[in-house]
């Protein structure tokens, strides 16, 4: 029973990642793509934790921890770049 629940939730998260990829490729503006990437990061993070709980090994949870810390740095850099560009466009 619990194995079937784990498997079905993992498939559902893969489906959500596919939908996010569609938005990431088609999205008209850069902000759409950034939000799609952020949502996909959250989905993959939940997937990693779910798989770690299913396998019952500690090292699997470390991957989720490290990705959460370093992924946030990347999103922060992209968001700051977008903010600077918007301010630059308003001045000119």
């Amino acid at each position: 029973m619990s194995g079937m629940l784990f498997t079905s939730m993992q498939w559902f998260m893969v489906f959500c990642a596919v939908v996010c990829t569609v938005r990431l490729v088609l999205g008209p503006t850069a902000a759409d793509r950034l939000v799609a990437l952020n949502v996909m990061s959250g989905i993959v993070l939940a997937f990693l934790v779910l798989r770690g709980v299913q396998q019952g090994r500690h090292i699997y949870l470390d991957v989720a921890l490290v990705y959460d810390i370093f992924g946030f740095l990347g999103f922060l850099a992209i968001a700051r770049f977008l903010k600077d560009r918007l301010e630059h466009e308003e001045e000119s």
């Binding site: 990829t21 996909m40 993959v44 990705y67 992209i78």
Partner: peptide
């Protein structure tokens, strides 16, 4: 942004 997503999925 697409490259960042590629690296995310590669880690997965």
């Amino acid at each position: 942004i697409a490259l960042s997503a590629v690296s995310l999925l590669c880690a997965l």
